[in-house]
Each structure stands twice: as C-alpha cells, then as structure tokens.
Amino acid sequence: MVFLTSFLARRLPLPRAPDKQDNFWRKSMWLRISSKFYGRKRNCFGLAIVPGWRALRYATRARKLKKENMKNLWEIRLNAACNEHGMDYHTFMTSLTQADIGLNRKVLTDLAIYEPRTFQSLVQFAKQRQLEVGLESLTIDSPHGIFHRGLPNKS
C-alpha cells in the first residue's frame, strides 16, 4: 500500500530518552502565536516566548474588558441620544426603572439608532414621569394651579 499524499512527509516526534523529549512541537506552537510579531520576536524562540505569553494573557483579559468597554460605549451613546431630545441620561434611566420598563442599555441604544421614533416616545414618557413625580415634589407642597396629565403616578 502506497500513500500518495504528503501526510506522512510531516515531521513526527522522534523516539528519545524520557527526560529528553522533542521540543519541536512545543516551540512551533509558540512560534505560530508570534508569527505576526515585529522583529526577531517573530522567529527566534527565545525572544518570542515571553511576548507570546503576554499576548495570550492580554487576550484572556480582553474578553472581560470588552464587556466593560461596550457598557461604557452604550452609556455614551445613550447620553448623546438623550441630550438630543433635551433629557438627562440618569433621569431617563431612573424614570424607566421606576416605571418597571426593563430595557437594558444595549437595546435602548439600538432603539435610538434604528427606531428613533420609539426612542423619542420613551424619552417623552420619561419627561412626563419626571414632571409627575419630580424630586422637588417629595418635600415641597405642589404649587397652585397644576394640571396633571398623561400617565398617573404609579407609587
């Protein structure tokens, strides 16, 4: 039986003494990781291994950091979207949570971008609610001549 493919042309681990194993595969793995590095780090194993460790450590940390960065990005976008309608971000979010609307920041930014009229109506709702249950109304008697409209105070 003859194998016509180049499958067996690859390098195989050679039999050695148990304390001296073939380092080729271990080295080739780290060199594969460092294949896009700059300078001698790319090809020299002794220089490549420490930056390779560092790169993998960054990669593991980045998976957690990406989530935090996305949260910050959503907050920034939501802040801008709220300011566009003359609304503060924090009052917007608090009024939504007080009204038991459980939309998260990611979905709200998606709405602000792709469903702007829906987002505008949410901001209008928040404004209305802020008027109805303002912080001032907790301590001060409401002044004369108020017209309550829209959604009622839930609390």
Binding site: L131, G134, E136, S142, H144, G145, F147, R149
Partner: peptide, 11 residues
Amino acid sequence: MSILARSIFRA
C-alpha cells in the same frame, strides 16, 4: 425646567 413647566404645564 421642572418646577416652572410643572406649574404651568399647559401654557
């Protein structure tokens, strides 16, 4: 805007 607008909201 809150107090002003609340007091004369319709106007």
